[in-house]
């Protein structure tokens, strides 16, 4: 294939991506330094950033994002991991159960939000009162867990399938209980997929929008940054502040990815040396399991 042919093949994809993703992203950054009145734009520098830091709605929204992240680590990642470990063995029942638990993942979050919204509706619903402001974040995290724990289950199942059976057998021969085998053998060997899972959960907690928009439309105390910024744009037509919030959200997502990817390197080096030290046989049978690992 000639150089010209390559460029010809590559240009359409790059063009669409640049025009509809990269350029607007750059524009968001630029717009965040302007104030818009009608068609006129005034340079305001870092004004909106300083405003955001002191804006109680933004502080509340960001705090809600973090609380939501904490809860979804439990309802999505931990539940997914537990399901994966419980359903790891290949048989017909487990295959069926995996298909059922993953199924909500193909649903639109608007459908998920409205269905649970009807079930939790004051007055008519089957379980009223779940969306009261005091427990709304927990409820949304639980719904989100229902929708996504299957995704994490599948990710962890892929990781578990990669663990050589000899390692697990060695642990069993050494008398490790299921609990010990999980903490000392399976979890350390799931490190790679655990990072992927954490990456999805962390970035997902900042990207979230649909469930909050559908389930908690008029609650000020349960806004997250993305619903706050859409409200700023739709309701107040405040493009400058909306862009600032977009930039902050983008930076948070990119920072999280960078930290997790950087953390993986450091933790990788640390666990490698920890495994080296763990060669002394212990009652848990860790010695031979790690020895099997090293071969």
């Amino acid at each position: 294939m000639t150089r010209r042919g390559q460029v010809l093949f590559f240009t359409p994809a790059l063009l669409v991506f640049v025009v509809f993703v990269l350029l607007p992203t750059t524009q968001t950054l630029l717009d965040s330094f302007y104030s818009f009145e009608g068609r006129e734009a005034h340079w305001v520098g870092g004004l909106y950033y300083r405003y955001a830091v002191t804006d109680p709605r933004f502080q509340q929204s960001l705090a809600n994002n973090l609380v939501y992240l904490g809860w979804t680590l439990l309802t999505e990642v931990s539940v997914g991991l537990a399901l994966a470990v419980a359903l790891a063995r290949e048989n017909r029942l487990n295959t069926f159960l995996r298909i059922v638990f993953f199924s909500p993942n193909v649903l639109s979050l608007v459908v998920v939000g409205l269905v649970f919204g009807f079930m939790f509706k004051e007055g008519v619903g089957i379980f009223p009162g779940m969306l009261k402001e005091t427990r709304a974040l927990l409820t949304v995290s639980a719904i989100s867990g229902w929708a996504y724990c299957g995704l994490y289950m599948v990710i962890f199942l892929a990781g578990l399938a990669n663990i050589p059976t000899e390692v697990l057998e060695a642990a069993q021969l050494d008398g490790a209980t299921a609990w010990q085998a999980f903490w000392r053998v399976k979890l350390p060997l799931l490190k790679e997929v655990l990072y992927v899972a954490l990456l999805i959960c962390f970035t997902g907690a900042f990207k979230a929008f649909d469930l909050f928009w559908v389930l908690l439309p008029n609650q000020d105390h349960t806004m997250i940054v993305s619903t706050l910024l859409v409200r700023e744009v739709i309701r107040y037509d405040n493009k400058g502040y909306g862009s600032t919030l977009s930039v902050i959200l983008t930076v948070l997502v990119l920072l999280t990815v960078a930290l997790l990817l950087g953390g993986r390197r450091i933790w990788g080096a640390w666990t490698a040396s920890a495994l080296g030290r763990a060669r002394v046989p212990t009652p848990a049978g860790e010695g031979s399991a790690s020895a099997a690992l090293r071969e």
């Binding site: 991506f17 025009v19 509809f20 993703v21 990269l22 350029l23 607007p24 992203t25 524009q27 968001t28 717009d31 970035t203 900042f206 990207k207 929008f209 993305s226 910024l229 859409v230 744009v233 493009k239 909306g242 862009s243 977009s246 930039v247 959200l249 983008t250 997502v253 990119l254 990815v257």
Partner: peptide, 17 residues
């Protein structure tokens, strides 16, 4: 980078584009 970027990163200018 495009895989990581959330929709919110390019949402607002996309409307005027």
């Amino acid at each position: 980078l495009g895989m990581i970027l959330p929709v919110q990163s390019f949402l607002i200018p996309l409307m005027s584009l």
